[in-house]
Design a protein around this nucleic acid. Structure first.
Lengths: 138, 138
DNA sequence: AACATATGTTAGGTTAGACTAACAATACAT
DNA sequence: ATGTATTGTTAGTCTAACCTAACATATGTT
């Protein structure tokens, strides 16, 4: 495994991967739009991801993701989805609350805590259904 | 309520408050040591907190916390403690895992999600004790 | 093929947060 | 009270992340 990415670079990598799976091609501008940043910022970020061998690309080149990049992206997305599920299914948060929090926390939660959240969500859903959601008032 | 603090400034404010409650006095160097940053970085951060009226101090002055500063610090600490309790009591994480994750997540978790975590922890402890801890293996 | 629009890149600037090294002020110990 | 050690401040540097404006390339329309 390579060195740890910053939260920001993880966001860019995640965007590249997500767009790629939907479209079979990524343009830098799609990434800019998804992340609400300038084209210039995207260019810089893509350069850094390429230096780290997580994506392939050069000036005016098509963008593709390397196997290591894909693995890293999938990890972040897994964290995102696990957190989102926990926030919405277990805690009963709205979709947008669950999304917003997952987007930020995915970058900093440890693997240990994440594993526990995943296991807990599974266990909770199996054993307690939505006991809590029925009780919680806010 | 004032403008939102950065994660970093929240850490400094939290440190000031924590040391103050333990010692009845804070020195910048205590903050430096608690956060593992240089004295220079602490000076800068304290200046910013003072500009924002969260602490009182000037060059070579004693440091004290304002009512708004205290309120803000207590909020962060409450978030920290709530997250810590959830991670250790509900998820069964080690103390250091719980601390490390709480330290980072406290700055970004939303009030809505936090409220739900607090309510859930209470509910869980009352109704399920450590069912999950007895089941979870890792 | 030529032009207009899209997209990508570069250059240069900003902000926040950290650092070290040098200097200033305070505190302590004799 | 004087000198040493500790603490605080400043100046200057660095990195990461963003931005705008200007320029370069690519694309699509006729």
């Amino acid at each position: 495994m390579g060195e740890k990415l910053t939260s920001s670079l993880e966001d860019y990598l995640e965007a590249v991967y997500t767009i790629l799976t939907k479209n079979n091609a990524v343009k830098a501008i799609d990434v800019s739009r998804m992340l609400n940043v300038s084209r210039a910022s995207t260019t810089e970020a893509l350069k850094k991801l390429a230096e780290k061998k997580l994506i392939n690309y050069g000036r005016y080149d098509a963008i593709s993701i390397t196997p290591e990049g894909e693995a890293a992206a999938k990890e972040v997305i897994k964290k995102h989805n696990s957190l989102h599920e926990f926030f919405s299914c277990v805690l009963g948060a709205s979709d947008s609350e669950a999304q917003d929090n997952a987007c930020k926390i995915e970058h900093i939660v440890s693997n240990d805590i994440l594993k526990r959240i995943v296991a807990f969500t599974k266990y909770y859903k199996k054993n307690f259904g939505d006991d809590f959601k029925n009780i919680y008032r806010s």
